[in-house]
């Protein structure tokens, strides 16, 4: 077998071109299939559900970790100490809110009325934000104009 391989290596034209093409195609398709399968598997296993406040209240289970997305409720931000605060996140499509206790770095644009995402753990009835997981949308870019007259 090794000798045959060496012969082919030194005289590659001995191999039937059609067979060679079929082998290459099979190898390429197999590689693509493996990549695609792994990609789908990793996407589902590495991803975490991103919930609105309504979905979180309906589906969260104690001990579970979720990503909460929504808008910070006006007047809900309370600083408990230099590194810990609480705030409420509202589902933009309903009036349901979730209170979050959060410690860690607060992004510069964080403020009531802004859209945020935060990773929370359900600790049995209350939600605790993971340290440094709070991200805030930057509000200035590309918002639709209101009240303009052309």
């Amino acid at each position: 077998m090794a000798a045959y391989g060496r012969v082919l290596w030194e005289n590659p034209r001995l191999m039937d071109p059609n067979r060679k093409r079929a082998v290459r195609l099979t190898v390429a398709l197999t590689a693509a299939l493996v990549l695609a399968t792994a990609l789908v598997y990793v996407s589902f296993s590495a991803g975490r559900d991103e919930f609105t406040a309504t979905q979180l209240l309906n589906r969260a289970k104690p001990g579970g970790q979720y990503i909460l997305a929504g808008t910070v409720v006006d007047g809900s931000v309370v600083h408990i100490n230099s590194s810990t605060m609480t705030f409420k996140v509202i589902d933009p499509h309903s009036s349901k809110t979730v209170a979050v206790r959060y410690s860690g770095l607060v992004p510069d644009p964080f403020a009531p009325g802004r859209a945020v995402m935060v990773t929370v753990n359900d600790s049995g009835g209350s939600f605790v934000g993971q340290q440094n997981s709070l991200t805030t949308k930057c509000p200035s870019k590309y918002q639709t104009a209101v009240g303009a007259s052309d």
Binding site: L35, V42, G47, R48, I67
Partner: peptide, 20 residues
């Protein structure tokens, strides 16, 4: 894609990209 299939958005970050 996950929203269309399961009705729930799934957030993926660096852990999903790195292995590939």
């Amino acid at each position: 894609i996950s929203d269309a299939i399961t009705g729930t958005k799934v957030s993926v970050g660096p852990p999903a990209f790195t292995p590939f």
